[in-house]
């Protein structure tokens, strides 16, 4: 283990100190070292968006992030979205609006939408589409996802 390093960061409000390989991406660390398999992967090359997590609140691709780049940062994964048993309004809206088909892109869509609504509580359809444009979905044609984000935005705004 001579080439391992210690990484410190915060995942879903819990601070973590992990012994990692410097060449293992955050995706591998989350899924394999920390057992947080809610973060998905579809290409591992930055091309599909499935591995999106929030780093200090911004959507970034965990398949491209090296442990040193997230040193001391706050990471939010899909497991950190609900408050206990209470779903985040976006999660509620995704369930209701049928934004979940196979569900494989869902974690990435939810986290990206969360960051969007934090910066802009009432985005237009076009702005939603722009914000989600790095996250591919093969099932929904994005329509129900957009509707779900709109629905959540209206509910969160009031």
């Amino acid at each position: 283990m001579s080439d391992s390093v210690i990484a410190n960061f915060d995942v879903n409000g819990r601070s973590r100190e992990v012994l990692v390989k410097p060449y293992h991406t955050l995706l591998e660390i989350l899924r394999e070292d920390l057992g947080l398999t809610g973060t998905k992967h579809g290409c591992e090359l930055g091309e599909c968006g499935a591995c999106t997590v929030l780093v200090d609140g911004l959507p970034q691709l965990s398949c491209l992030l090296l442990p040193h780049q997230v040193e001391g940062k706050e990471i939010t994964t899909i497991e950190g979205l609900a408050e206990g048993d209470e779903l985040h309004p976006l999660q509620e809206a995704f369930v209701e609006a049928g934004a979940v088909q196979c569900g494989y892109c869902t974690p990435s869509m939810l986290l990206t939408a969360k960051a969007l609504l934090e910066g802009d509580p009432s985005p237009s359809r076009q702005e939603i589409a722009e914000a989600l444009s790095g996250n591919l979905c093969r099932c929904t044609g994005y329509e129900a996802i957009t509707r779900a984000v709109e629905l959540a935005a209206t509910r969160m705004d009031t």
Binding site: F94, V95, G98, G103
Partner: peptide, 21 residues
């Protein structure tokens, strides 16, 4: 009726286990 899909809740919380999980 437009009811929620039975597996949607697990999928939005990231707890659904796919094969690679």
């Amino acid at each position: 009726k437009p009811l929620a899909k039975v597996d949607a809740r697990a999928k939005v919380t990231g707890s659904t286990l796919y094969a690679d999980d």
